[in-house]
């Protein structure tokens, strides 16, 4: 059995190596004329098809921004919906060029699964939702509560850690899917539902009267979500990394969808803006693109703040607060390296 495993692993690795050695991903993408972007098969606010079959969402907009930077057109994206089970294989086997699929960056994924993570585009974390009527204000008041929890996830382990650390007890109600959790929680089979905070926000607005339920402020785990590419093509990883950074920097520098073309038309007073938008220096050439790469990426869907508010923030039904995902200048931890 060991031998068979080794042979299979060896074949997989050599096939992979051959794929990578063949040509750079950038050239492949340009030759194909479209960016193959791995997204979720459906996650509220992050990736979902609209009535015309066009993909929309927070993760989707990052795909489009990369396509705009590389190919000049944010519509030239082929979305590859992937489940949690096959997302990394799709990426590693070359069926996808880049992955934006609410994926938590972890050490084992970064190293063992041979992914290169792009900068974090959403800081998530595990939270709790309770009925407002319970009058609970802190997760530490939840002693003895029954908690709906998805089995086999990191959230299950985080929950056990949290309660052990605080010396309180809970009664787990194991469930399989989000839908099931909603049914159990709204049917009163459990007092508390716990999952990632973004998922809680999406679950909360399913209630006819969302204000009957409150999401506690405690976040008990770190879930930094980010895009990813395969190991072995640093140029391609750089492109993904700097597109994300460009969108975050754009918000910090006050560049948005409506003023980006004006700012990019001629070099202005702010050298940081000039460098990002290509009116000063040759930063596009450093990642194998032209000087307008960031301008196109920002023009596609706006800066990070605009993408956030439109898809999951205050302009969307999800109404998730910026919280940790605010710029470092606004009390969040979003801090992108400068383009210089």
């Amino acid at each position: 059995m060991k031998l068979v495993n080794n042979v299979i692993a060896g074949m997989a690795v050599s096939a992979l190596a051959a794929t990578v050695a063949q040509a750079s991903t950038l050239e492949d993408v340009k030759a194909a004329g479209e960016l193959k972007c791995v997204v979720s098969t459906g996650l509220a606010g992050f990736a979902t098809p609209n009535a015309d079959g066009k993909w929309e969402g927070f993760d989707v907009e990052f795909c489009r921004a990369v396509a705009a930077a590389v190919l000049g057109d944010g519509e030239k994206v082929k979305f590859i919906p992937a489940t949690t089970k096959n997302r990394f294989t799709v990426l590693n086997s070359g069926e996808g060029d880049i992955l934006f699929r609410n994926t938590t960056e972890t050490m084992s994924r970064d190293t063992d699964l041979k992914l290169t993570f792009l900068p974090v585009n959403y800081y998530d974390g595990q939270g709790f939702m309770v009925p407002t009527a319970l009058g609970v204000t802190s997760a530490k008041d939840l002693d003895g509560a029954s908690i709906c929890i998805q089995t086999g996830t990191t959230t299950e382990l985080n929950l056990a850690d949290f309660f052990r650390k605080n010396g309180i007890s809970y009664e787990p109600v194991p469930i399989e899917t989000n839908e099931e959790a909603f049914a159990n929680y709204s049917g009163g089979r459990c007092d508390v539902y716990t999952t990632d905070a973004s998922g809680l926000a999406a679950t909360r607005i399913k209630f006819d009267n969302p204000s009957d339920h409150v999401i506690l402020s405690e976040i008990i785990s770190k879930e930094p979500l980010g895009g990813a590419v395969r190991h072995g093509d640093d140029q391609w990883a750089d492109i993904g990394k700097w597109v994300v950074n460009a969108l975050i920097n754009a918000e910090e520098l006050g560049i948005n969808q409506s003023n980006v073309q004006d700012l990019a038309a001629a070099s202005g007073d702010n050298p940081s803006v000039n460098r990002l938008l290509g009116t000063e220096g040759e930063f596009g050439a450093m990642i194998g693109l032209d000087s307008q790469w960031a301008t196109r990426a920002i023009a596609q869907g706006g800066n990070y703040g605009e993408i956030f508010e439109r898809n999951i923030g205050s302009d969307s039904p999800l109404n998730i607060a910026r919280g940790l995902n605010a710029l470092w200048t606004n009390g969040g931890i979003l801090y992108a390296a400068p383009a210089r």
Binding site: S40, T41, G42, L43, A44, G45, F46, A47, T48, P49, N50, I80, P81, A82, T83, N86, V90, E179, F182, A202, I205, K206, F207, N311, I312, S316, P317, L318
Partner: peptide, 21 residues
């Protein structure tokens, strides 16, 4: 494996923030 049959389309549509639940 990421192909969207009616059930898959349904599940993906369910995630539309305007139509959740």
């Amino acid at each position: 494996i990421g192909l969207m049959d009616p059930l898959g389309i349904g599940r993906a549509s369910l995630a539309d923030p305007a139509w959740l639940g």
